[in-house]
Amino acid sequence: MRKEFRLAGAGGQGLITAAIILAAAAAEHTEYNAVQSQSYGPESRGGSSKADVIISTDEIDYPEIKSPEILLVMTQEACDKFVPGVRPGGMVIVDDTYVKDVPPIDAKVIKYSISAKAKELGREIVANIVALGLLVGLTGIVPEEAALQSVLARVPKGTEELNKTAFLAGIQAAKEVNS
């Protein structure tokens, strides 16, 4: 088994954090190997942002992803840039709060108002955790409980409740989308 994820959007949307949590859930709570890398630098202070995660039963030598199997996009710019590179038959998760047009692609496209949902829960800043819940719910790559533990271990103190709610909202959304 080898799954490649790309999380892309704007700096400040917390996608690198979401990627770290996803990789940590796999690394620290499952038998899988995991690596996480990101585009780093001025981009993390605004502009576009991209984080990659590979989860695999085998050793992961080369840490870079060429064509992700699962892509999460949270801005139109990220959508336009990364959707064409998705592996045929893969999955694209779209935050349709901000993404209006998805280019035609041989992949399962799932739209959900991730940022709007986060706002509704209290703060848009937890959109990354809603997205993570959605991603975990849709792919089943790591057990929900493991992912939640990783969320709680890596979010700022005092925000655990809100982030838990956000994560569970994402899980719930996955169920709705799948049904």
Binding site: A23, A27, Y32, V35, Y40
Partner: peptide
């Protein structure tokens, strides 16, 4: 190198 320094790994 940056590749290793900025890689997160199990």
């Amino acid at each position: 190198d940056e590749m290793v320094g900025h890689l997160r790994e199990k």
